[in-house]
Design a protein around this nucleic acid. Structure first.
Lengths: 340, 340
DNA sequence: CTGAAAGCGCTTACAG
DNA sequence: CTGAAAGCGCTTACAG
């Protein structure tokens, strides 16, 4: 397959490479006749500019790197969906990588993306991220970075998040308002900020309503999995603890719990109310349908890529950029797993 | 941010760019002393080879393009997961695009990927793909291509698929074996091959069991959505048709039907059996749990990328490649939505 | 309006 | 063991 290059077009027309290049790029200083000849021939030969050469010259790849914990995940796949879609409209392509919640992998992937000279990077941090130096390195390299959902406040970059504490507060409040008094929490791992914030929101809601906070009603889901939800529900049920509600870190955990209670013939929400977090599609179709906190994945992805492209543009123009933190609203979706 | 280049390393050490390059690339004809000096300095300065220049020289991008109908989709997100993971291990990155089942968008995306000079392309075709010329164009461009799941037999490339006809046959047979006689089918759109094949498998199973095939029991889901499953179930229920089972094109459609029947107090599987297709995670957690055909998304993604990378390698070595079609096994997962 | 030339940063065949 | 040179394919400042 003989590649069509500017050189071959120029030589076929007996003009210089310079002129051929200008004709195709709508430079004003080319005669209409020459321009037409070049454009026609380019079309006829199906000329495609060599993007490698363009990248090398312009120092732009028109590619954005994206790292998320996992893609087989309702929330994150929605985020990715929005990012790919919006970026494409603006002429950017997305390279996606999954950290699998491994900080080591995440570091390698950051390295990969920097080596690839992507024009910008979007990350939702893995749960195990403690050492922030690899993230700082991105900023130091001059590559625009936007963190979303699972972020660190210590990084000097733009961020898109929800207010996990307020959202968890609202979820717990809903349980309290519907008459629950002994509310358990299936929390996430101890390290990630959003897991901490959801726990704090839960605790605060109890305190504000003068309900007793009972440490023994808090279970930690290391993997935030269906199985953990199932098993903790079982453990809770088989213990003698008095409990009339559960606030789960995520819908998947909540659904694990629902599955157990359905099997054990514990009535939801009569015997126990359950509320999840994220409002996955699944929440609306299981029985009973699951009350949840709507976490706008699509919106979050869109805001994040929008912000990133804006910063890339600003930097290109040599403008100073001011980092922003966008906080998206959430709201409690009431369904059948909690009382009226 | 002053970029560290071979040039800057060479000049700092007072050697030529050539030698610096060779030292870093483990060419044998460099003295150990020089090699060490170069490597040490490169590490100290945190040298990253400019991938744009490398791409231009090697004519390789080490990037693979992937087009799927949508990413917020259990099956496809599993495919993407496998592809990203395997590619990364082999030194390739993945650019993902979504056609949203639009053939026009799909064509633009193919164009984008070819312009980007990706080293290979993976596609699961959109339902509306009738004109195959954009796909042929990929093959003609010399870019290795592997089609998976939603393919066209008319394209001269490797493919990874399941046998949709046999799988649908097995699903329908399961309904028949458990005593169902009047089996409806919520089929997919008329164009895509896998939707046709599933319909044919369903029909063949009826015929082989001497059951009457009733055209009026076949409903076409244009969008393969939850709503269609729900609405067709309602339509079916409110008609006077005699029906004791439904084979749905996909779990999402099946779950729509289940949701309707649950609301309408129609007992599953006593009054009506339901079997889906794809074995989404959701199938195991709804009530009743949904029998389904396991469609191995992860395996399919892995085989597809593996095949593609193999062909890329072969072409690089100037070897002739023989296209393969891999057919992955499926099996019926029996759960509570069908009888024992 | 046109084109020679420099340069982006690398790789590699070739000469010494 | 070392390096000058050509070249990948483009863009653009500059001269005419």
């Amino acid at each position: 397959m003989e590649q069509v290059t500017l050189k071959s077009i120029a030589s076929e027309l007996g003009i210089s490479i310079t002129t051929a290049s200008k004709a195709l790029k709508n430079y004003p200083d080319v005669s209409p006749k020459t321009r037409k000849a070049v454009i026609d021939l380019a079309r006829k030969l199906n000329y495609i500019p060599n993007s490698f050469a363009v990248n090398l010259r312009t120092k732009e790849s028109k590619v954005i790197g994206l790292i998320i914990p996992e893609i087989v995940h309702y929330f994150f796949s929605n985020v990715v969906n929005a990012i790919i879609e919006y970026a494409e409209k603006k002429g950017y392509l997305i390279i996606t990588l999954q950290s699998n919640e491994s900080d080591k992998l995440e570091e390698k992937q950051i390295e990969l993306l920097l080596n690839k000279r992507v024009d910008g990077i979007l990350i939702s941090l893995s749960n195990n991220r403690k050492d922030l130096s690899p993230i700082h390195k991105i900023v130091e390299s001059g590559t625009p970075l936007v963190l979303f959902d699972k972020i660190s406040k210590l990084i000097n970059c733009s961020k898109v998040i929800i207010n996990d504490r307020d959202a968890a507060y609202a979820a717990t409040e809903h349980l309290i308002n519907t008459g629950c008094k002994d509310i358990a929490h299936f929390r996430g791992p101890l390290n990630p900020q959003n897991s901490i914030d959801r726990f704090l929101g839960y605790k605060k809601a109890l305190e504000d309503s003068k309900l007793h906070f009972d440490k023994s009603l808090v279970y930690t889901c290391e993997k935030v999995s269906f199985e953990e939800g199932y098993n903790f529900a079982k453990e809770l049920h088989q213990s003698n603890k008095k409990v009339d509600a559960i606030f789960a870190i995520t819908d998947l955990v909540a659904i694990g719990a629902i599955t157990y209670f359905n099997e054990a013939n514990v009535k939801i929400p009569e015997d126990i109310s359950i509320i999840g977090f994220s409002n996955w599609f699944m929440a609306s179709v299981i029985s009973p349908s699951l009350s949840s906190v709507d976490q706008p994945g699509y919106e979050m992805g869109k805001k994040a890529i929008k912000l990133l492209l804006k910063e890339i543009k600003a930097i290109k123009k040599g403008k100073k950029i001011k980092h922003k933190t966008i906080v998206l609203p959430t709201n409690v979706i009431k369904r059948s797993s909690t009382r009226d």
